[in-house]
């Protein structure tokens, strides 16, 4: 059987703090890069962690994959000791990577993609946008304020139409990404609605609202979820999420789900 995932040590090429506490790490890992699909993730541990604490690797979605050079990018926020250690790393240092893991986005039914990213939710979506590059589609990106918008420039280069929402109105539409999405979907006739596929990642309340809007317009919707994980590969069953068919696991059944299969309580 062909190997589908790898446990590798990868060298960091660049690690930049692009916003306060938010880092963009670029590293070389041709093996993982050549198999990765948009929406998949890696379990990552900083090479600076020599002892047993923090113990576990951290799940980070694959932000970008340059298949020609074998380079990958992660976009992450420092939330605890694991991501803190990763943030302190510099070029030339190493990280441990297990991946690519999980189910990525299902790209088969995609005629007109609409990508919706809130805050750091853009992390798995740039890889998706670059994969869909050339299609007639839209990316809606949102943040609290202009200064917190992430990765606008590379999204623009994908050729997708870019719509921006800031909660304080400092850039683009004032309000939430969900309002922009709703206005967009309201313009579609029934036939167009069938051709649209929404791909969303962001805070849980945003995803719930995105699904609810899509559901109202009869539009297919996939979401990428984030949870605490221990193994990332279906061993521990710790990352359970409720679905219509009982518990599913974010690491194996996801992180990308058909939103209609999840229970949005």
């Amino acid at each position: 059987m062909k190997k589908r995932h790898f446990d590798k040590t990868a060298r960091i090429i660049e690690n930049l703090e692009i916003r306060p506490n938010i880092f963009l790490m670029r590293l070389a890992c041709p093996d993982i890069c050549s198999y990765a699909q948009p929406g998949q993730f890696c379990m990552v541990k900083s090479g600076l962690v020599q002892g047993l604490d923090p113990l576990l690797r951290r799940p980070l979605s694959i932000h970008r994959c340059h298949r020609d050079t074998g380079e990958m990018e992660f976009l992450f926020r420092v939330v605890g000791r694991g991501t803190k250690a990763l943030s302190m790393q510099t070029s030339g240092q190493e990280v441990e990577l297990l991946g690519p893991l999980g189910k990525g986005f299902d790209l088969k039914p995609t005629q007109i993609p609409i990508i919706v990213g809130g805050g750091l939710g853009v992390a798995p979506l740039l890889f998706l946008a670059e994969t869909l590059s050339g299609k007639k589609g839209v990316a809606i990106l949102g943040a609290v304020t202009k200064g917190e918008l992430l990765r606008l420039e590379p999204f623009k280069k994908t050729g997708l139409e870019i719509l921006v929402a800031t909660e304080d109105g400092s850039f683009g539409n004032e309000g939430l990404v969900t309002s922009v999405l709703e206005r967009l979907l309201a313009k579609l006739d029934d036939r167009a609605a069938r051709d649209v596929a929404v791909f969303a990642c962001g805070p849980h309340p945003m995803l719930r609202a995105v699904f609810s809007i899509c559901n109202g317009y009869g539009v297919k919707c996939q979401v990428a979820l984030e949870t605490i994980m221990a193994c990332g590969s279906g061993l521990c069953l710790g990352c359970a999420v409720r679905s219509s068919g009982g518990y599913m696991h974010v690491c194996k059944d996801g992180p990308c789900f058909d939103a209609s299969r999840l229970l949005w309580e």
């Binding site: 047993l52 923090p54 576990l56 949870t227 605490i228 990352c239």
Partner: peptide, 23 residues
Amino acid sequence: RTGNKPPRLFETPCGLLNAIGLE
């Protein structure tokens, strides 16, 4: 068995807390 309701995991110093619930 379906297992326990999440959250099921938490990392502690040099350790892992789990309550999977025998799924």
